[in-house]
Computed example of a mutant assay.
Amino acid sequence: MKDPFHYEGDKRWSPASRCFVIAPNDAAELPFVTKGIRADGDGVIKFRPVGQEDDVSHPVLAGEIIPVRATHVRATGTSGQTTIIGYA
Rank of each mutant, 00 (worst) to 15 (best):
K11N: 07
K11M: 09
W13Q: 06
W13R: 06
W13Y: 09
S14F: 07
S14D: 15
P15N: 14
P15S: 14
P15H: 05
P15C: 07
A16T: 01
A16N: 04
A16C: 05
R18W: 03
C19D: 01
C19V: 09
V21C: 11
I22T: 05
I22N: 03
A23T: 15
A23Q: 15
A23Y: 15
P24E: 02
P24D: 09
N25M: 12
N25D: 15
N25F: 09
D26S: 05
D26L: 08
A27S: 14
A27I: 12
A28H: 02
A28F: 05
A28I: 01
L30F: 09
L30H: 14
F32I: 01
T34V: 07
T34H: 07
K35I: 00
K35E: 02
G36Q: 08
G36W: 15
I37C: 08
R38C: 14
R38Q: 14
A39E: 06
A39F: 01
D40W: 12
G41D: 06
D42I: 02
G43F: 03
G43E: 03
V44A: 05
V44Y: 05
I45F: 04
I45G: 02
K46P: 00
K46G: 02
R48Q: 12
R48L: 08
P49Y: 14
P49S: 08
G51N: 12
Q52V: 04
Q52L: 10
E53H: 05
E53Y: 07
E53C: 04
D54P: 00
S57P: 00
H58I: 06
H58F: 10
H58G: 02
H58K: 12
H58W: 13
P59Y: 04
P59I: 01
V60T: 06
L61W: 11
L61S: 15
G63H: 05
P67A: 09
R69T: 07
R69W: 06
T71G: 07
H72R: 13
R74V: 05
R74N: 12
A75N: 11
A75V: 01
A75P: 00
T76K: 03
G77L: 03
T78G: 02
T78S: 15
T78K: 04
